[in-house]
């Protein structure tokens, strides 16, 4: 019990962020037309690549003079996270292009 209280106290700011983010996420996504579920999922997927920051921090402070675990894992983490971010946003953009094209035709 004391450990839990201790944990809360150490991380209370983060816990506040978490609780509010949950409500924010729910609020933003509710009432979305089903047509947009796929692009939205893809967009959210790209944002979940925010782990790229963790990868940058990891690789940023790795020792480059020798080959070590931190260096290798750092490179892999940055590489895969970037795939998630870059690929995710480009795919989403391509999906949304389809909607834009439709709109133009509707206006004609």
């Amino acid at each position: 019990m004391e450990q839990i209280l201790h944990f809360f106290n150490d991380n209370k700011e983060a816990i506040f962020i978490i609780v509010l983010s949950v409500f924010l996420g729910i609020e933003v996504i509710s009432n979305v037309p089903s047509v947009l579920h796929t692009p939205l999922m893809s967009g959210a997927n790209a944002i979940s690549g925010v782990i790229i920051i963790g990868g940058i921090i990891l690789l940023g402070h790795a020792d480059l003079s020798t080959i070590n675990l931190k260096l290798i894992l750092g490179i892999l983490a940055v590489f895969f996270a970037t795939l998630n971010v870059a690929g995710g946003f480009v795919v989403t953009d391509r999906m949304l292009d389809m909607f834009k094209k439709k709109k133009k035709q509707t206006n004609n």
Partner: peptide, 18 residues
């Protein structure tokens, strides 16, 4: 890192609702 916490949890919640 607040950007990671907020971004991650936000997407986590949005994804769950989706």
């Amino acid at each position: 890192n607040q950007a990671m916490i907020l971004g991650g949890i936000f997407v986590g919640a949005a994804g769950t609702i989706l």
